[in-house]
Write a protein that binds this DNA or RNA. Structure first.
Lengths: 93, 93
DNA sequence: TAAAAATACTCCATAGGTATTTTAT
DNA sequence: ATAAAATACCTATGGAGTATTTTTA
């Protein structure tokens, strides 16, 4: 089953173009970020990032760009739902 | 963070009007269903079901009806995303 | 040889189960 | 008394961490 926490990790990696920077930003270890992305790729049946090395980071694949658009819509929907249900918390997730 | 597995449990409870029937249908124990619904209610900040006893089951509250509409939209979006990403699996989740 | 991701492994938090209790009619 | 949900408690799985290795420019 799709995991929203992994999807959030995916968004941060996409934003930073780096597993390491995403890890720092999210307060996870780098291997946890790797695990999140690998799980998500398995779940969605698509490779989301092209992994580079030596300071070039990771960049979205075509499937990754589709997935990012989907993630944005999905978290928007979640925010909307929480607002409708009168919940006061505002962070995504 | 919202858990899609709990949201799916919620849908089945809403459909069957019963924690016990939902448990049977999903292959969970009844306490697990209780736990899913309680977590979800805490996460969303709203009571989703009115609990009855003695064969009368559980019925959606007003917030629960909103949440169900949201869940339907959300799982539809997930299905769409998986289709777009060329994934062949069809079950929700 | 250096920067970044992947792998190996360990551990503990929590999701899930069984047994029991509570509630309401 | 009975049907159904809640609670108590225990266990095992897997998510998260640290240490290390691999990769490639």
């Amino acid at each position: 089953m799709l995991d929203l926490q992994q999807l959030q990790t995916f968004r941060v990696v996409a934003l930073t173009n780096s597993f390491n920077r995403a890890a720092a930003e999210l307060g996870y270890s780098q291997p946890s970020v790797t695990f999140h992305i690998q799980s998500l790729e398995r779940e969605l049946g698509a490779t989301l990032f092209t992994r580079h090395r030596l300071s070039r980071g990771a960049t979205l694949t075509e499937a990754g760009r589709h997935a990012l658009a989907f993630a944005d819509k999905l978290f928007g929907l979640v925010q909307e739902a929480k607002a409708t249900l009168g919940h006061e918390r505002t962070e995504v997730g």
